[in-house]
């Protein structure tokens, strides 16, 4: 599928090289803060957080020559706002094929917004065991928190209006690496159309509710 048909008002805030540099920097910070990668595990939040998690795993391996165990979770079943994210998309598989107990878990998402997704992810992780610590890494922090949650590693702090949309696209899923901001528009008018377009909207939704 092609990237969203772009209207003029959409503005790219991170391009591919910038994304790459941000992730490389985060990888450095992670290794530094944890004094290596001993006892570390990475868990990406589906979908896109898991893609970023894989990239971080790769960056860390380049630095440390070691492959950190990785997993992915779908937090849909833990959300307090199934209603809000009302796109009743497919619940995807959660896979953490290693013991969470005693590890430092690096939780990874694409966008940090209200904090509700992170809250759900924390609950989900706790159901898998008792991690020694949980850290949070995000590509973009766009502000507007509704819960007392902050990220340990941030690719870019992005001041936004609450109603604006932050669109994260990654080559693995969208064919291109970029982060863009789209101003608030007439929300309902923006979405009619066949499957392709509504799917796009669903993705946008996921990025925004992070």
């Amino acid at each position: 599928m092609s990237p969203t048909a772009r209207d003029d008002a959409t503005r790219v805030v991170l391009d591919a090289p910038q994304i790459q540099r941000a992730l490389a920097r985060i990888a450095h910070e992670i290794v530094e803060r944890n004094k290596g990668v001993e006892g570390l595990g990475i868990v990406g939040i589906r979908s896109r957080g898991d893609l970023i998690a894989r990239r971080l795993q790769h960056e860390i391996a380049r630095l440390e020559g070691e492959s950190v165990p990785i997993g992915a979770i779908d937090v849909t079943l833990y959300r307090d706002d199934i209603s809000r994210g009302a796109d009743h998309h497919l619940v995807q598989i959660t896979e953490i094929p290693w013991e969470v107990d005693g590890r430092t878990v690096l939780l990874v998402d694409d966008v940090l917004f209200t904090g509700r997704t992170t809250r759900a992810a924390l609950d989900a992780l706790m159901d898998f065991g008792r991690p020694r610590a949980i850290q949070l890494a995000v590509l973009v922090d766009r502000g507007h928190r509704e819960l007392p949650i902050r990220a340990d590693y941030v690719g870019k702090n992005l001041p936004t209006q609450r109603a604006e949309e932050v669109l994260v696209r990654l080559s693995e899923s969208d064919g291109v690496d970029e982060v863009a901001i789209r101003p608030a528009g007439p929300r309902i008018a923006a979405v009619p159309g066949p499957g392709g377009e509504s799917k796009q909207t669903a993705r946008t939704t996921r990025a925004r509710r992070a």
């Binding site: 809000r84 979405v191 009619p192 909207t201 669903a202 925004r208």
Partner: peptide, 16 residues
């Protein structure tokens, strides 16, 4: 004022 996305997300589903 929680998350306006719900409207955006809900409407295409109904339309579809």
């Amino acid at each position: 004022g929680g998350a306006p996305v719900a409207l955006a997300a809900a409407s295409p589903r109904r339309a579809a």
